[in-house]
């Protein structure tokens, strides 16, 4: 099958994770992975991002399918349930909100900048090696640390799911996927189905 430019977006995803080890400010680029799928679902009324452009999904396919790192077993029924998917989305958004609150704290000078990445919402890993003091305000770096924590945490979870179950098992509970599907369901609500 003909390869398109978007078949190589996994390189961008991998590069993003690598760049975070060198300069944390690159973490801001991750906002693209938040904004683009939402904008496509709101204005394009589709999940074209998941379907075509998601570099992370491609990375999991590459590791799990091409490199055979996945066990290729079905996921437990619980992880596929709507309750879990919507619950995970709610949890994820709550943690995102806390991260924003922490950034606001630094912005208001109520908190000091913490040059650490929090993995799996629990483990604080010192990340000073990727931080250089700049003329930029501290909250910009705080947001970068917080956002990179989210991106690295979800990549770790995705890799664990990829190894244990199907290569793209992360897609089942991906908060962005769940959110964009909800937006699409909202658009289609009340319209007649084709099938």
């Amino acid at each position: 099958m003909k390869k398109h430019f978007y078949d190589y977006l996994w390189i961008a995803s991998a590069l993003y994770l690598i760049l975070g080890f060198f300069n944390i400010l690159f973490a801001w680029l991750g906002l693209l992975c938040f904004m683009i799928p939402l904008l496509i679902s709101i204005f394009g009324k589709s999940k074209a991002y998941c379907n075509r452009y998601c570099g992370r999904g491609q990375l999991f396919s590459l590791l799990g399918q091409t490199l055979h790192l996945s066990r290729n077993k079905p996921m437990p029924r619980f992880l596929k349930s709507r309750i879990f998917r919507y619950g995970f989305l709610a949890f994820f958004m709550t943690m995102f909100g806390l991260m924003i609150a922490q950034t606001v704290g630094v912005f208001l000078n109520a908190d000091s900048l913490k040059t650490a990445v929090t993995l799996l919402w629990t483990f604080r890993v010192p990340w000073t090696f990727a931080y250089t003091e700049t003329a930029l305000p501290a909250w910009i770096s705080q947001f970068a640390f917080g956002f990179y924590s989210i991106m690295l945490t979800s990549t770790i979870l995705g890799i664990v799911l990829m190894v244990l179950y199907k290569p793209r098992a992360w897609c089942v509970c991906c908060p962005m996927g769940t959110m964009t599907q909800l937006v699409c369901k909202g658009h289609a609500h009340g319209k007649t189905e084709q099938n």
């Binding site: 679902s41 998941c50 999904g57 991906c174 996927g177 099938n195």
Partner: peptide, 21 residues
């Protein structure tokens, strides 16, 4: 979950994601 893994696996393009749902 409308992830679209099936659409890229299908050699005949017989499966598509309907309106992201």
């Amino acid at each position: 979950v409308a992830c679209g893994c099936c659409t890229s696996a299908c050699k005949l393009q017989a499966i598509t994601v309907f309106r992201g749902i």
